[in-house]
């Protein structure tokens, strides 16, 4: 048993060291707010960066993050062409509230539901809120977990770095 654990730790260390740009998985189906299926790999933004924000209607910090970004979103889009895609992990209990929540709060984002956390799990995400930044080629270049007021400034610095590279 000890050997197995050692081998496992080695694997983990090896993989962690060479962590490099993954993309969104090919085989995960999300739903849009009209209930229509959309493949996660179909999320694109014409070669511009994409922010993927995992959230839930019941998650207070997630709501603070998406509300605060809304105030600066126009400016972010103009300056960098970035797009925010909000992925709700609400399950059957609250998924029916996602569309009213988004439209009632007047969020300008592209929103999908991930009812059984398939995409969240495939990306190895532990908790919400969790933010992933994709570059123009759809590669994951940065991730951030949790939200505190001001976290969005750090996120936008990363977005600007990407935008100037292109």
């Amino acid at each position: 048993m000890k050997k197995i654990i050692l081998t496992f730790c080695f694997c983990l260390a090896a993989t962690a060291l060479m962590a490099q740009s993954a993309t969104l998985p090919a085989n995960v189906t999300l739903h849009n707010l009209n209930g229509e299926p959309v493949q996660a790999s179909a999320i694109t933004n014409d070669g511009n960066p994409i922010i993927i924000s995992f959230w839930a209607t019941w998650c207070k910090p997630c709501n603070r993050e998406l509300t605060n970004i809304k105030e600066v979103y126009d400016q972010w889009q103009e300056e960098t062409g970035v797009k925010l895609v909000a992925i709700s992990i609400d399950d059957a209990r609250s998924v029916g509230r996602v569309r009213p929540h988004v439209e009632g709060n007047d969020w300008p984002y592209e929103v999908y539901t991930d009812q059984n956390s398939d995409l969240k799990r495939a990306l190895g995400i532990v908790n919400v809120p969790h933010t992933i930044l994709l570059n123009g080629d759809g590669e994951i270049v940065w991730q951030h977990t949790g939200y505190q007021d001001g976290s969005e400034d750090e996120l936008y610095e990363k977005v600007k770095e990407l935008a100037t590279k292109q």
Partner: peptide
């Protein structure tokens, strides 16, 4: 290919 994951 890519390796991803988490530790908690």
């Amino acid at each position: 290919g890519h390796v991803t994951g988490n530790i908690a």
